[in-house]
Simulated assay, not measured.
Amino acid sequence: MQINSIWGSKKKISFWDKLFRRNKNIAKELSTPDIIENNCQGLILGNYNLKSFLFSTDMALIENNDADAILAVYPFPPSPKIIKTLIDFSGKPVVCGVGGGKTKGKKSLEMAIYAEEMGASGIIVNIPFENKDIKKIRQKVSIPIFATVATSDFDFLKNRIEAGVNVFHVSGGTNTNKIVKEITAKFPGFPVMATGGKSLTDIDESINSGSKAIVLSPPSNKDLFKTIMDKYRDTF
């Protein structure tokens, strides 16, 4: 599969391995790069050590990917139906988006409480989210609060931590690895994960910069079907 240089199927498991090695993970169509499992330290959430997060709410992609956890963020107001469905379906830790620029205040607080009640492993807020609202959420939920950031500004980050944030998710475009390195220097030991980019080199640089986990964006259904249909056209 040549959709993206970071994606590909691992060695297929035979029928007999599936039958007699039930404790082994079955290879998925979209397998996360080995570099993440081998080199990432991981984030501890409950009983899990999470090294890879799939940035998706697509159930087909979630089902056919072997990432450790799901980062469920989308450009719409948070939905109780989506939160519950993804947590019930995924069979792995889910971190749910509860607010940012469009959703905040009481609505975000309600979604955070609901996400915890449904079994979310964490909630995440986007860059515009206000610290006063993070504090209110922190008072009501016990699961980790993630915050997406695109800066290494000391005061901004310090205020986020004091408000109750437990993990920074760095999504700074081409500056992501630089920001990760600066955050880990300013706040040694504070958990940071990063959007991994589009190549193994990007992922390697993120890990070496101090990211404890990598967020991966899967190829779109359109791109997946293009590869399949090109093959079918050539064959038939």
Rank of each mutant, 00 (worst) to 15 (best):
Q2E: 15
I3H: 06
I3Q: 03
N4C: 12
S5T: 15
I6F: 02
W7H: 06
K12V: 14
F15C: 02
F15V: 13
W16C: 07
D17K: 04
N23K: 09
N23F: 13
K24E: 15
I26Q: 09
K28D: 04
E29R: 10
D34G: 11
I35D: 00
I36P: 02
E37Y: 15
N38L: 13
I44V: 12
I44L: 10
G46H: 04
N47V: 09
Y48D: 15
F53C: 00
L54T: 09
F55S: 03
T57F: 08
T57A: 10
M59G: 08
M59W: 14
L61A: 11
E63M: 09
D66A: 02
A67K: 05
D68G: 00
D68C: 03
V73E: 11
V73G: 14
V73I: 14
P75D: 07
P78L: 07
P78E: 07
K81Y: 15
K81R: 08
K81M: 13
I83S: 03
K84Q: 09
I87D: 02
F89C: 01
V94E: 06
V95Q: 02
G99H: 01
G99R: 01
G100V: 08
T103A: 07
T103N: 01
K104W: 15
K107R: 10
I113M: 09
Y114F: 13
Y114S: 05
E116R: 07
E117D: 09
E117P: 05
M118H: 06
G122Y: 06
I123Y: 03
I123F: 07
I124R: 00
N126D: 14
I127S: 11
I127Q: 05
P128W: 06
E130Q: 12
N131M: 06
N131Y: 03
K132L: 14
I134D: 02
K135M: 13
K135S: 14
R138N: 06
Q139T: 15
I143T: 04
I143M: 00
P144N: 04
V149G: 04
V149D: 02
A150C: 12
T151M: 02
T151E: 06
F154D: 06
F154Y: 14
F156N: 13
F156W: 13
L157N: 01
K158I: 10
I161N: 01
G164H: 05
N166E: 12
V167T: 05
V167S: 09
H169T: 15
H169I: 14
V170S: 01
T174K: 13
K178M: 11
K178G: 02
K181S: 15
F187C: 07
P188H: 01
F190D: 02
P191Q: 04
P191A: 12
V192I: 08
A194R: 05
G197S: 05
K198M: 13
L200K: 00
T201D: 13
D202L: 09
E205F: 09
E205K: 08
S206V: 07
S206T: 07
I214L: 00
V215L: 00
V215E: 01
L216I: 10
S217K: 11
S220D: 05
N221W: 12
K222E: 12
K222V: 15
D223K: 10
D223I: 14
T227F: 11
D230L: 02
R233E: 15
R233W: 13
D234R: 12
